[in-house]
């Protein structure tokens, strides 16, 4: 039995099937990788690392960003978080949970005409600092609030 030949046949056969699936529209290129999704930023562990993945240098703490959330979240699976920025020319708002396996939870682009405010709900594995990261006029700013979690939301 010629094993190497068999392996080669299988490998090339698999590739052909994939190519056919793509060309037939069964697999969209978006399945392979979403180019408008910043994978690097969602893989980061901390605030400053996320800023770098966004292409910034370093974020500065700002009192013009407000995080609205409960101080104690009973259920870590559903923690309501709202962020309001009073910084002029706010371009984007991101929500990060420091102690989650990956810090970045959500990032919002704020076009002109849209208020620099977003509200959503995030999962928190444990009590942690939550950061709001705001890009305004090309620079990064952040605010921090600790949210206590009595029941984690990432267990399993």
């Amino acid at each position: 039995m010629n094993h190497s030949r068999r392996n080669l046949m299988q490998a090339s056969g698999g590739a052909t099937v994939m190519a056919l699936a793509v060309s037939a529209g069964l697999l969209k290129s978006a399945d392979v990788f979403a180019d408008d999704w910043n994978k690097a930023a969602f893989d980061t562990k901390g605030l400053q690392e996320t800023v770098k993945a966004f292409g910034g240098s370093a974020a500065v703490e700002s009192k013009d960003i407000a995080i609205t959330s409960p101080d104690i979240a009973e259920n870590g699976a559903v923690v309501p978080v709202s962020v309001t920025s009073k910084l002029g020319k706010t371009e984007s708002i991101a929500i990060l949970v420091e102690k989650n396996p990956n810090a970045l939870s959500a990032s919002f682009d704020i076009p002109g005409g849209t208020e620099p405010f977003v509200s959503t709900r995030v999962k928190m594995g444990q009590t942690s600092n939550v950061h709001a990261l705001v890009k305004a006029d090309g620079k990064y700013y952040f605010a921090t609030k600790e949210i206590k979690v009595t029941l984690g939301g990432c267990g399993g």
Partner: peptide
């Protein structure tokens, strides 16, 4: 509004803007 989300947004996501 446009957004990029990670898996730590809650199940059945809520969004307000």
């Amino acid at each position: 509004l446009s957004a990029q989300w990670g898996p730590s947004v809650s199940k059945n996501p809520f969004l307000e803007f």
